[in-house]
Design a protein around this nucleic acid. Structure first.
Length: 490
RNA sequence: GCGGAGUUAGUUUAGCUCGGUAUGACGUCAGCUUCCCAAGCUGAAGGCCGCGGGUUCGAAUCCCGCACUCCGCACCA
């Protein structure tokens, strides 16, 4: 399916839609999830918990979305998260000062330089607007963090631009109170906020978005220990280590990737393996995925080695997860800024842990799942089918009466009441039976149970499968078990 | 943020050139049919035509501004 097809489904079936849409002053980059979207998201998050948090015995926290200025001084976001920008006074073209200077005159000025240095370089090299030849204005810093004022004095604080800072700040307490031992992962699901210049493409580029982040704290001297590495040694990864979008992608096992030096350590390979196994279970087409090694210029300011997990969708390659080896950047920054001690004991050794991060975009992941799962079934009147994995389906089972009269409605209601607390069931009496099946196909419901006249005689119902459209009869007493078995997480 | 295209019911769409408050389809709801795979019959609801201003006796239609959506550039910590 393509982008427009997913958006149409999202609007028609309550997956997601623009925020504040009834008002003219609604801002771009804000979308909300409807009932189907929330149900899908909750199930996705549960899968993430199972496959990453619980599987690796990580801790999960839930931190504040508003954090103090010191946090972002220490993290480097106040300095590095702000782009130096300048604007053409004639045509209004806005460019990054450092990039424009480098492209036009080959003079390299670090991104973190003072605005006056950019202005000086622009004047010295006679740099003018590449589009219209106009004069550039004085360079300013545009920070992508949303600033908020706390209390009557409006003290400065910020909406977090990534969830992980609470994990770093909380690390000393977590390690002590939860009896941590290296390596240890700490995860968090939550919202992050970035003042994007041009948000676009719905869930793919938001100003307010969900992240599922994991920070693995490890002893930098023991990056090849990875105690559970054997679990993923045969897990296959699509790796793209050379520069360039079209560079070759090699499909190798985690252990081969380490041996061949494609990945820097067993620790990194282990977590990429877990991540690949997780995404396999979301139903995303893994043959359209890659772990792309980022070049020096693409990496975030805090990253030493970075791999993006990307998936091909109709609009191109889409980054779903950033995997960054952040080294000691964060903990040493917070240690210095706060005066708190962030070193911990690893056996007999006192170490400042390094951090390997798995920073997942939930909204983008959900979009990708929808796009890869949505199709038209040409063999059956072009029916629209959302072939979600059963455990991710917003509705697990539709409960239908073949017809409403002769007591079938009442019998159907009774069955619905008994199963609705055990799974996501949807009751429907109205319209032709075939239309109700098709409607369930569109929200991805893997099963439909239909009550007919035979039900009243022998206490059996038909169960219809979304993908094969096959039907079979089962006793009412077995509905619970059959549904539970098929919607269980893998 | 720059340039381009667009915005009409839940979705999709006609009407805009040549101003007179809007068309069809799908969907939804109620009833009939009682039929196990959409598009059968009857009926209904749903739009101040993105928002604001201007021109006009009168604006979906013409003009201006803004917002949003998509595409290209830039941006993506």
């Amino acid at each position: 399916m393509n982008y427009d097809g997913v958006v149409k489904l999202a609007l028609e079936r309550g997956f997601y839609f623009p925020s504040c849409e009834v008002y003219g002053d609604a801002q771009a980059g804000f979308w909300e999830y409807g009932p189907s979207g929330v149900s899908l998201k909750n199930k996705f998050v549960e899968l993430w918990r199972r496959e990453l948090i619980r599987r690796d015995a990580m801790m999960e926290i839930d931190g504040s979305q508003i954090m103090s200025g010191s946090v972002f001084e220490a993290s480097g976001h106040l300095a590095s998260f702000a782009d130096p920008i300048t604007r053409c006074e004639k045509c209004g073209l806005t460019v990054r000062a450092d990039k424009a200077i480098e492209e036009i005159s080959n003079v390299v000025i670090p991104e973190s330089a003072e605005p006056a240095e950019f202005d000086a370089a622009i004047a010295e090299n006679g740099i003018r607007c590449p589009k219209c030849g106009g004069q550039f204005s004085a360079t300013e810093r545009f920070n992508m963090m949303f600033r908020v004022g706390i209390g009557p004095e409006q003290k400065a604080a910020y909406l977090r631009p990534e969830t992980c800072q609470s994990i770093f700040v909380d690390f000393p307490r977590l390690f002590k109170s939860m009896r941590g031992r290296l390596p240890v992962g700490v995860g968090q699901i939550g919202k992050s906020f970035r003042n994007e210049i041009a948000p676009r493409q719905g869930l793919l580029r938001l100003r307010e978005f969900y992240q599922a982040e994991i920070e693995v704290f490890c002893n930098p001297g023991k990056l090849d220990d990875a105690p559970n590495f054997a679990e993923v040694e045969n897990t296959m990864l699509n790796l793209q280590v050379a520069d360039g979008d079209d560079a070759a992608i090699q499909t190798v096992s985690c252990s081969d990737a380490v041996q061949a030096g494609l990945l820097p350590s067993r620790l990194v390979a282990y977590y990429l393996g877990l991540l690949a196994e997780f995404y396999e279970k979301t139903g995303i087409d893994m043959s359209k995925s890659r772990f792309r090694k980022l070049g020096q210029k693409e990496k975030a300011f805090y990253a030493e080695v970075a791999f993006d997990f990307e998936v091909e969708v109709s609009t191109g390659w889409l980054e779903l997860v950033a995997c960054n080896y952040r080294s000691g950047h964060d903990l040493s920054g917070h240690a210095k800024q706060s005066g708190e001690k962030f070193e911990v004991m690893d056996g007999e050794q006192k170490v400042l842990p390094h951090v390997f991060e798995i920073s997942m975009g939930i909204d983008r992941s959900l979009y990708t799942i929808l796009e890869h799962s949505l199709s038209h079934d040409a063999e059956h009147d072009d029916r629209t089918v959302l072939s979600l994995r059963p455990y991710l389906a917003p509705v697990h089972v539709g409960v239908l009466s073949l017809v409403k009269k002769d007591g079938l409605r009442e019998k159907t209601d009774e069955i619905y009441r008994t199963i609705r607390r055990k799974c996501d069931a949807f009751l429907d009496h109205s319209g032709a039976i075939g239309r109700r099946y098709r409607r369930l196909d569109e929200v991805g419901a893997p099963f439909a149970i239909t009550v007919d006249h035979q039900t009243l005689q022998d206490q059996t119902v038909t169960i219809r499968r979304r993908d094969s459209m096959e039907q079979s009869r089962i006793p009412i007493s077995e509905i619970d078990g059959v549904i539970a078995e098929h919607i269980a997480y893998p």
